[in-house]
Amino acid sequence: MLQAEDLTLTYRDGASTLDAVHDVSLTIGDYQFVGILGPSGSGKSSLLYLLSGLRKPTSGEVYLDDRPYSRMSDRERVALRRTEFGFVFQQHFLINYLTALENVMVAAPVQDRAHAAQARALLADLGLKDKLHRFPYELSGGERQRVAIARAMIHRPRVIFADEPTGLLDRRTGLQVMSLLRSYREQGSLIAVTHNPEILTEANSVIRLRDGRLVMAGERSARIIREPALKPGPAVAHGE
């Protein structure tokens, strides 16, 4: 279970300060698909970075299974990202000189033949069976993003963080990508940041942010949730 308590992230610009995230508390259960929705500059990505441990909050705390991030060393937080979390960014961020298969293997816990076979199977599941040995610049945008999704899944993380995963894709490809990501709910949680509510139709819960503050979460977002979660334990926002 991922839990955030009174999270605030403040950026300083000379004498002035700006709260990218302000006093956000929430709980995300296992096997959930949680959407974080909001306009540009609302603090969605910042919240994602805080939850994934990529950023340290100015104040507040994040817990994974009651383990507070602030008590973890840098090395432990990095290890957490490697073993427990997977990431899909708005841009694919594939390594240009590695093939699709190798890019997936980059995140494998061990780089051996067994994991290579697993990566191959994963890419095949994602419809890239014929493009295992292609370099990123030889793939289309949707294919690249699928490789990035495979990279995020190869080590079977408990949570996949997806930051605008369809932001640079056309609508059809975006929906395909989201469908692939949604399928991960059977193995772990998915937290996806977007400004496009359409891709969150199957989310268990949706958190809305405006100016870094939580404006709506959980059941209040029910109108855009059309299907129930496969497993119980919805996201609950506190304090708003």
């Binding site: 093939t99 293997m105 980059v106 780089q111 051996d112 040995h133 030889e138």
Partner: peptide, 16 residues
């Protein structure tokens, strides 16, 4: 570039 290659099991090695 397209005339490349077989993927390596150790993509992050110096050799690759």
């Amino acid at each position: 570039h397209q005339a490349t290659v077989r993927s390596s099991v150790r993509p992050l090695s110096s050799l690759t």
